[in-house]
Structure formats: structure tokens, C-alpha cells
Amino acid sequence: MKSPDADVLARCPWAGIDDPLYARYHDEEWGVPHADDQRLFEKLLLEGFQAGLSWITILRKRESFRRAFHDFDPARIARYTERDIARLMADEGIVRNRLKVLAAIDNAKAYLVLRKRQSLASFLWHHAGGKPAINAYAKVGEVPASTDVSVRLSKALKKEGFRFVGPTTLYAFMQSTGMVNDHLTGCPRHKACAKLQRAFVPPTA
């Protein structure tokens, strides 16, 4: 029987072996497909805040982000005023970037408009190809930073009024939410996520 240490050593290198938070994110969340609007909206905003930074920085601040942004409630964020912006800019627990804060508010407003027509999940999955893509990369260097699909999804979101949703940001979002499986083939999570992705039925409305 393979020892637990073997799985740790085979884990995708970016997750490391000595940071429990990053390891748990890799082992339990990254690459798992879902269609939960609230979770997708949260991840979309967090990926926007991550632009130019490392994901572990955002991951360590995620609970602070949730508190500061009222659990990423789009309706509440869309009503934020200058007082809220000032509050956020003074919050050391999050990334204090005014452009990103303003983008988060605009994205909440865009989400509410989109939601009148269809769910965010159905919109994202449709423009991401309609089903998860199961890749087979053996080395980190083989994994792209963006793809034609992430470019298309980026353009679609920008057309809806979303900001900080460039192709590279969107591809990281797709990896995280299981729209693509970019666990390396030697990583135990590749097979596990592939099984989940093959059984996943993307929403259509």
C-alpha cells in the first residue's frame, strides 16, 4: 500500500509540502467542478484581487476578505458607498488596492444584471466550453498561463461589465473551479478530479 507521504511528494509542486493551508486547498478544492453561484462569484473576485500577487497571499487573507465583503454577497457589495470603500482601504486583512476594490463593486453590479437572465454558473460554464476539460500535463512547464477558451471567457465577462477578468486571471479561475483539470498526471488529485469532472453536469440556466 502506498504511504501518505507518497501522495504528499507527488502533489503538484506549486502546493508545496510544508504549508497546510496551501496543501488543503490543493487536495480538497483546486480542480473540483461545481455550479454554486455564490462560490463562483467569490472566487472570481478573489482571482481579481490576486492579479500581480501570489495565490497563497490571497488564500491566507480569504477569511478576512469574506468578513470585509460580507461573505461576498453581490447584492450587498453592489450597494457599497464611499464609506465602505474607505473601510476596505483601511482593512489590513485584505489587499488594499482601490482599483480592485472598485472593480469588485462593479462586478457585483454586473453579476446582478446578468443574474436576471441566467445564473453566473451557466454563463461561465457555457463560455468555458460547456464541460470540464481534462488535460494531461506531466510537468509544470507544460501548463499554459492562458488559452483560447480563457480569452473567450474573458471577453464575454468584460462585455457584461466585469473587470479584472483578463485571460490569465480567468484561466487560473478555470483551473481552480474545475473547468479544466491541470493537476499534473503524477499527482493523485488528477485522477480524483477527473472522476468528478466526468460525472459533473454543467448548468444550463
Rank of each mutant, 00 (worst) to 15 (best):
K2P: 14
K2T: 09
S3A: 13
P4N: 09
D7L: 09
V8G: 03
V8Q: 07
L9S: 11
R11Y: 11
R11C: 11
I17E: 12
D19F: 01
A23T: 09
Y25V: 07
Y25L: 09
D27L: 08
D27K: 10
E28R: 14
V32R: 14
P33S: 04
H34C: 04
D36M: 05
D37I: 04
Q38F: 03
R39T: 10
F41I: 07
E42N: 13
L45K: 01
E47A: 10
E47W: 13
F49L: 13
Q50R: 13
T57I: 15
I58W: 02
I58C: 12
L59T: 07
L59N: 00
E63I: 04
E63V: 08
F69G: 05
D71C: 05
D71G: 03
F72G: 07
D73V: 09
A75E: 15
R79G: 11
Y80W: 13
A86W: 10
A90T: 03
D91C: 03
V95L: 07
R98Q: 14
V101S: 03
L102M: 13
A104S: 15
I105T: 08
I105L: 11
N107C: 09
Y111S: 08
L114I: 10
R115G: 01
S119I: 06
F123Q: 03
H126S: 15
H126R: 15
A128L: 02
A128C: 08
G129C: 10
A133R: 14
N135C: 10
A138N: 02
G141S: 11
V143G: 06
P144V: 12
A145D: 05
T147K: 05
V149Y: 11
K158G: 13
F164G: 01
P167L: 06
T169S: 11
L170T: 03
L170K: 04
L170V: 14
Q175C: 12
Q175E: 15
H183K: 01
L184K: 01
T185Q: 06
T185P: 04
G186I: 07
R189T: 02
H190F: 14
H190C: 13
H190Q: 13
C193P: 05
L196P: 08
P202G: 07
A205C: 09
